[in-house]
């Protein structure tokens, strides 16, 4: 596609959002940004990426942190803000890309060509995917899925005005149950083409 576009994907755990993002990036010949943003931030700061990764989506513990004149003791906030700064710089460039998670739809809301998408899935469909992908039994898969979704919602809603997973936060909300990851990626690709007028 000749026109610049940014696809910002939010997703439920187990819905295949990450795979959809990867498939879209491959199909459209652009970079995919997800956890690799933390690695890039660590590289810029010249610090251990593992440490940043561990706090990239950790829940901030109440009562254990304090803010003074805009300075916070929360390392989680610092890692998040570094990622947001990186995303802002990507937004300010002329690169087209796909980005998964990291509040990208809110961080980049004023950038031209941003299309925000939320991928959800039928609960049974997601449980099946998580069980298969991680080799878990049903109970463990449900626990993992619910825990990740709670963390994602907390993280998103802590830094964004829009609410995680709610229709008015995104341009398009799609249930991946019906088309699968590849089919949903193709659907989104067509949507993006029409949105940017190609």
């Amino acid at each position: 596609m000749s026109k610049r576009f940014i696809i910002a994907i939010g997703r439920e755990f187990g819905s295949g959002g990450k795979h959809i993002g990867r498939a879209l990036a491959k199909e459209l010949g652009v970079n995919l940004y997800d956890r690799n943003i933390v690695e890039k931030v660590a590289e810029e700061l010249d610090v251990d990426a593992e440490q940043l990764m561990a706090y990239a989506k950790k829940k901030r513990r109440p009562f254990f942190h304090k803010t003074v004149k805009g300075h916070t003791t929360s390392f989680e906030d610092h890692v998040a803000n570094h990622q947001f700064d990186y995303i802002r710089r990507l937004g300010a460039s002329d690169e087209s890309f796909v980005i998964v998670g990291r509040c990208a739809e809110e961080i980049l809301k004023d950038v031209d060509g941003v299309i925000s998408i939320f991928v959800k899935g039928d609960r049974e469909y997601k449980i099946g995917r998580v069980m298969k992908q991680f080799g878990l039994d049903r109970a463990a898969a449900i626990e993992k899925m619910d825990r990740h979704d709670r963390t994602r919602k907390y993280y998103h809603d802590r830094y964004c005005k829009g609410k995680w997973g709610q229709i008015d936060t995104y341009d398009l909300c799609i249930d991946s149950t019906h088309f699968g990851t590849q089919g949903t990626a193709e659907f989104i690709k067509e949507y993006v083409k029409r949105r940017i007028g190609e």
Partner: peptide, 8 residues
């Protein structure tokens, strides 16, 4: 702690 955190 914040200045340290901002620098990773």
């Amino acid at each position: 702690v914040s200045v340290a955190g901002k620098n990773g």
